[in-house]
Amino acid sequence: MILLQTTRAIRFALQNFRRNLWLSIVTIIIIAVAVFSVSLVAALNVLGHRALATVEQRVDVTLELVPSASEADIATFVERLQNQPLVASVAYLSKTDALEAFKRNHANDANIQNLLAELTDNPLPASVTLKAKRIADYDSILAFVDLDENAKFVADSKRDFKDSQLVIEKLTTLTDRVRDIGFLVSSVFAFLSLIVVFNTIRIAIYTHREEIGIMRLVGASNAFIRSPFIIESVLYSVIGAGLAITLLVLLWQGATPTLHKFFFKDTTVNLGTVLQQNLWTIVGWQFLGALLLSTFSSTIATRRYLKV
C-alpha cells in the first residue's frame, strides 16, 4: 500500500514538474548555484589547508655542528632536542653521511668528483635538521638552541623559516578571508533558494488547485495530498545538487594543472587524489544540504498554502 501510494505521489510530482517546466528549471539552477557556491568555498578551504600544510612541511632548520664535538656530545645534544615538546623530529647527519650524500648528489659532475678525490679530510660538517610541530614554535626552539650549553655545539645555522612564516601568515589570512566571503555569498544563495523553492511550490499548488480540491473531496489523505509537492522539491534538490557536483568536478579537473603549478609544484600532493578522497563526503553534504533546504521550504509552503 505504502509503495503504491509513494509511486502515485511520485507520478503526481513528475506531473507538477512537467507542467511548470520553466519554473522547475529556474528553481534547479538556483539550488545548483547555491550548492556550488558552498562547495567552491569548501574546495578553496581544502586547497588552502593543503597549501599551508605543504609550506609548513617544507620548513626546517639545519644546525651545522662544530668539528670539535664528539659523538657523545652530539648524542647528548640530539637527545636534548628530541626531548623538547615543541620539536616534531630531529635528523642527525654525520660527517661521513654528509660526504656520501654530497658525492651522490654530484655524481655526474667530474670537476667536483676530481676535487673530492684530492681531498684528504672530509670538509663537510655533521649537522642536525629539526622540524617544529608548528611554524610558530621555531622561535622558542631556536632560543633553546642558543642557550650556552647547546650553542657550544653549533657552528652555524640556516634559519630561513622567517620567509616561510610570512608566506604562511599570508596564506592563512587569505584562506580566512575566502572562507568569510564564501560563507556570506553561500548564505545569500541559500536564502534565495529557500525563497525560490517556496514560491515554486506555491505556484505548483495554485496550478493544481483543481486536483487538490477533488482529492480533498474524494477522501485523499492529507499526507498524500502534500507528498507530491514535497517529492517535487526533493527532485529539485537532487537535480540541483547533481548539477553542482558535475560542475565542481569539471572545474576541479580543469583547474588542477594550473593549481598544481602554482601551489604544489615539487610536492607529493596530487589534486586528483584529493578530489577522489573527498568526493563522496562532498557529494553527501551537498545532497543533504540541498535536501534539507528544499524540504524545509516546501514544507512551509504546503503548510501555508495547502489547506487540507
Partner: peptide, 10 residues
C-alpha cells in the same frame, strides 16, 4: 479512477 487512486486503491 482518480478518486480511487488518491485513496490508495489497488
Amino acid at each position: 479512477a482518480f478518486a480511487l487512486e488518491v485513496s490508495g486503491a489497488l
